Amino acid sequence: MHAKCYSCAVSVVVLTLLSACANNKGPVREWREPETTKWEEADTTPPTALPLDADLIEFDVQRRGQTAFFVDSAHIEIGSDGVTRLPLVSRSSRGAAVVTYEGFRCETSENRLYAIASEGQWSIPRTNPWRTVALNSFDPKSVLMHDFLCKDASPRAPDEIIQKLRYPKPDWQ
C-alpha cells in the first residue's frame, strides 16, 4: 500500500515540474553555430635598422651552453592582429651572431620567422609558415613566448615584456 502512495506522490511531483516547464513563456531562440571572426594577419615589415648592442636584453635558457639569447628592446611591438613582433639575437661565445625578426601569436602558441639579417640588411625567407611553439625550457622561442611575451593567451604590453626580461623572477618564487 505504501509503494502505491509513494508512486502516486512521485508522479504528482514530476507532473507539476513538467507543467511548470511547459508554462514558461520565455523567448525561444533557434540554435545557431557560434559566430567566429576570422583572424587576419597584419602586414609586416622588419625594422629599418638592425639591433644595437645597447638595446639588447639577454634572457636565460636552460640549454644555454655556448650561446646567449637576446631581445631587441627598442623594436618590440604588438600588432593590431595581436602578434608580438621583435628582433631576436643568438650569439655564440666566439662572437658569431644570428639576427632574426619574428612574430609570436599568444592566442595559438605559434611563432613565425619574418626576416633574417644578412650583411647588414634584412632578407625575407622563401617560406615562413606559422609553427607551434611547444612548452620546452630548453627552446629559446618557447622560453621567450611562455615566460615573457604572453600572459595566458594574450600578449603582454611591450613595457611589461621589457620589465620581465630585465627583472625575471627566480624559479623558487
Rank of each mutant, 00 (worst) to 15 (best):
H2K: 09
A3R: 15
K4G: 00
K4W: 07
C5Y: 15
Y6G: 11
C8Y: 14
C8N: 14
V12G: 00
V12I: 12
V14L: 15
V14G: 07
L15Y: 04
L17A: 13
L18V: 06
L18M: 09
A20G: 08
A20S: 09
A20T: 03
C21G: 03
A22H: 00
N23P: 05
K25Q: 13
K25W: 08
P27Q: 06
V28E: 00
E30F: 07
R32V: 11
R32E: 11
E33C: 10
T36F: 14
T37D: 15
T37Q: 15
E41C: 03
E41I: 01
A42H: 10
D43N: 12
T45G: 00
P47E: 02
T48R: 10
L50K: 11
L50W: 08
L50I: 12
L50G: 09
P51A: 08
L52S: 04
D53P: 04
D53S: 14
A54W: 05
A54C: 04
D55Y: 06
I57M: 11
E58I: 05
F59K: 10
D60C: 05
V61M: 05
Q62H: 14
R64Q: 14
R64P: 02
G65M: 12
Q66M: 13
T67N: 07
T67C: 03
A68C: 09
F69L: 06
F70D: 04
D72F: 01
I76E: 00
E77G: 06
E77Q: 12
E77Y: 04
I78E: 01
L86S: 12
P87Y: 02
L88Q: 00
V89E: 07
S92K: 11
S93N: 05
G95Q: 08
V99W: 01
T100V: 09
E102I: 01
G103A: 10
F104Q: 07
C106G: 09
C106L: 10
T108R: 13
E110M: 08
E110L: 03
Y114L: 01
Y114M: 00
A115W: 06
I116V: 07
I116G: 00
A117D: 04
S118L: 13
G120P: 02
Q121M: 01
Q121F: 01
W122P: 00
W122C: 02
R126F: 07
T127K: 13
N128C: 04
N128F: 03
N128W: 01
W130H: 12
T132S: 15
V133Y: 11
A134Q: 15
S137I: 13
S137E: 14
F138C: 04
F138A: 09
K141S: 02
S142E: 07
V143Q: 07
L144M: 12
M145V: 07
H146W: 06
H146P: 02
D147K: 11
F148S: 03
F148G: 03
F148L: 03
K151W: 02
D152L: 06
D152K: 10
D152V: 06
S154T: 11
P155K: 10
D159S: 06
E160K: 13
L165C: 08
R166Q: 15
P170H: 12
D171N: 08
W172V: 13
